[in-house]
Nucleic acid binder design. Structure first.
Lengths: 124, 124
DNA sequence: TCCAGGTTCTACATGGCGTAGAAAATCGGG
DNA sequence: CCCGATTTTCTACGCCATGTAGAACCTGGA
């Protein structure tokens, strides 16, 4: 459902990493300074368009009462990631097999985390 | 990297569920019969185009020496799913938090599987 | 040699995304 | 209350992925 383009992704990253609620101008400035962009400024309308689209995708909300509208991500980056993962698993019959392979591919450190999480869940 | 359209997805499903290697005609027939399609036949060239695109995406290979080329999926559906999941996790800092949430969302049955898988790994 | 089936080429419509100007709405100061 | 400045909305265009398929090309057998 939620496939993000490059710019959309960048905006989401800023919303996830930055302050709780940010204006389009804030975001435009940060986009200009961000990594590969060598300071190229986008038009504010561009950012606003992207934000509108993200809102339509229900990834972003805005406060409409304050004058420069303030935008924020609806879910955390982690939550969103989990949604993507579940979406990926969606139409698979053998979920167990997927889990097995998935686990087989993660690092020992994460494996340890996983065990801990599972154990905590058992005790709770 | 690998976003699939509806038809591409359907073709992959047939390759994953059906015989090891299938021809474009096989696939066209099966697509016609599949679920919602109410028997609407696609042109074979359509299927061939899709297969060519899937090949370019390295999701499909074909035997070029046999006359009706025979197509097959490069990876299993499970493997592909895992790749998608890892791709989703890719740019996340706090992978552990993602894992925690992910686990929090799966069914008790799958949780049990997960424990078993982890334990087996420990013993191996 | 010629055909039928198979493959490749080329093409077009649709829709998402990056991008932004033009126009409309609104806010703060005079 | 009016105006310029700021902000938001509308509209638009180019590009690329995808669904769709005809036209042209190729090849083995009759």
């Amino acid at each position: 459902m939620a496939t993000l383009g490059d710019l959309e992704r960048s905006v989401m990253d800023l919303l996830w990493d930055g302050a709780e609620a940010q204006t389009a101008n804030d975001l435009r400035d940060k986009l200009a300074q961000a990594h590969g962009n060598d300071g190229k400024e986008l038009a504010v309308t561009t950012v606003l368009t992207v934000l509108a689209r993200l809102e339509k995708k229900q990834l972003v909300t805005r406060e409409r009462d304050t004058r420069p509208h303030r935008y924020r991500a609806v879910t955390s980056r982690e939550e969103h990631t989990v949604e993507l993962m579940n979406e990926a698993m969606g139409n698979v019959m053998d979920r167990e097999a997927v889990l097995a392979r998935f686990i087989g591919g993660i690092s020992p450190v994460e494996l340890a985390s996983l065990r801990r999480i599972l154990d905590d869940g058992a005790n709770a």
